[in-house]
């Protein structure tokens, strides 16, 4: 499973637990002790899932940052490559002109 879909699933579970937490909080006046125990369990689970969520994100984001940096470098290399080819063509152009002129003079064609 990809890190992103794992993270989305964790979020889904946290969302459900938070809804349960909200409903239990409303029930506190009815049976304080029992509902406090429930709240304890729910809050603990939310915090643990959050921890896993952040861990998943940290690992995934670290990996993608390296990949993105490499992609950006590669892209810059592609750009530089084309610019170099343009410069090379300009130099070849100059070279052709020069060689032609040298031959022209050397063979006394003028």
């Amino acid at each position: 499973m990809k890190g992103q879909s794992a993270a989305l699933q964790i979020l889904e579970e946290i969302k459900m637990l938070k809804l349960a937490q909200y409903l239990v909080e409303k029930l506190l006046p009815e049976d304080y002790e029992l509902n406090m125990q429930r709240l304890d369990v729910i809050t603990g689970k939310i915090q643990k899932l959050r921890k896993v969520y952040y861990y998943t994100l940290k690992v995934g984001m670290d990996e993608i940052r390296t990949d993105l940096e490499n992609a950006l470098n590669d892209l810059k290399n592609y750009n530089d490559g084309i610019d170099r080819q343009v410069t090379d063509l300009a130099q070849i152009n100059q070279m052709l002109k020069l060689v032609a002129q040298v031959i022209f003079v050397a063979f006394g064609l003028g």
């Binding site: 952040y54 861990y55 940290k58 993608i64 940052r65 992609a71 950006l72």
Partner: peptide
């Protein structure tokens, strides 16, 4: 952890902007 992840997202955004800016010059 939230702060760490936020930093990672900010960095990612920076890289995305830079990437797309460098794409069209090709």
């Amino acid at each position: 952890s939230n702060k760490e992840v936020s930093k990672a997202f900010t960095k990612q955004n920076q890289l995305l902007v830079e990437y797309f800016k460098s794409l069209s010059p090709i």
